[in-house]
Design a protein around this nucleic acid. Structure first.
Lengths: 130, 130
DNA sequence: CTGTATCCTCTAAGATACTG
DNA sequence: CAGTATCTTAGAGGATACAG
C-alpha cells in the first residue's frame, strides 16, 4: 500500500516523539521549562525554606503552582520535604544532593544571560525598528 | 484605605512579573523553553542547514514550528539566514557567534542529564510503585 | 500553616490549505 | 523549495473555594 507524505511524516513524528521522550537532555529541559522550577530551586539554594516563605519570596507564583512545583521536584528527588514536629508544626523544603548538583548549570546560564541577553535585546529592537 | 490580602498579593504579582521580565536568566529560560529551539540549535551545531534539511532531521516538528523557531532565533541574532543565489536558489541557516557562545550551556546540560536523569527516573518510579 | 479540588483562561503547538 | 495564513486543540497556569 502507498502512504501519503503526511502519513509517513506522522509515523516519523511518532517514532521521533518516542525517541525524544528517552533523550535525557530533553527530559532535563522539560524539567526546567515549567515556569517556577528554577525560581524555587534558586531560592532553596540559600537554605531550607517553608511553604509560606517560598510564597513570600516568589510573589508571582500562585499557591497552586508552588505546591505543584514542590511536588514535582520532590518526586524527582531534587528536593526533600520534611515535616518539623515542633510547635507550631511546619514543613521545610531543602535541596537534596542531586538538587545541589544542578546548581552549576544555573550559574552558567546566569552568567551567559548576564553577559549576552543585552545583545539579544538589541537585536530584537533592531528588527522592530527596521 | 485597606487592601485585602489578595489585592496586595495581586500588586506584588504585577511588580514581580515586571521584575521577572527584566531578569536576564529568566529571559534565557524563556528562549530555551519553546519546544524546538534547542533541537534546532543542536542541529545547526554541525554546520549550516537548509529549511528542508532541518525538517528531515527534526521529523517531530511541523513546518510551522520550524519556521517560527528559525524566525525567533534570527530575530535574537542567534542564527543567520542566508539566501544562496545559486541554481536552484535555496536558504541556509547557521549559528552566529552569539549562537555558538551558547553551546557550552547545552553541553553542560547534556552532561548533567546523561549522568543524573537515570536517578531522577528511578526516583519517579519509586514514588509510583509505593 | 499547608495544603486539595474545581473551574476557567490563554497560549503554544498541531493540522491543514494555500502562495511565490 | 521555502514559506504564510487560518483554524483547532491540548495543557499549563491562574482564580477561587474549601479542608485537615
Amino acid at each position: 500500500m502507498t502512504l501519503t507524505f503526511e502519513e509517513r511524516r506522522q509515523m516519523a513524528q511518532d517514532t521521533y516523539a518516542a525517541y525524544l521522550a528517552e533523550c535525557p537532555a530533553r527530559q532535563l529541559l522539560d524539567m526546567f521549562s515549567t515556569k517556577w522550577t528554577t525560581l524555587v530551586l534558586y531560592q532553596l539554594n540559600d537554605g531550607p525554606l517553608r511553604h509560606s516563605e517560598l510564597r513570600r519570596r516568589i510573589p508571582g507564583a500562585s499557591q497552586k503552582m508552588i505546591t505543584e512545583t514542590l511536588r514535582s521536584l520532590e518526586r524527582d528527588g531534587i528536593i526533600v520535604r520534611e515535616v518539623k514536629q515542633v510547635y507550631p508544626a511546619h514543613v521545610e523544603y531543602s535541596l537534596s544532593p542531586l538538587g545541589e548538583s544542578m546548581l552549576p548549570i544555573f550559574s552558567q546560564m546566569k552568567i551567559w544571560a548576564e553577559q549576552n541577553m543585552a545583545e539579544v535585546e538589541r537585536n530584537r529592537a533592531a528588527q522592530a525598528g527596521g
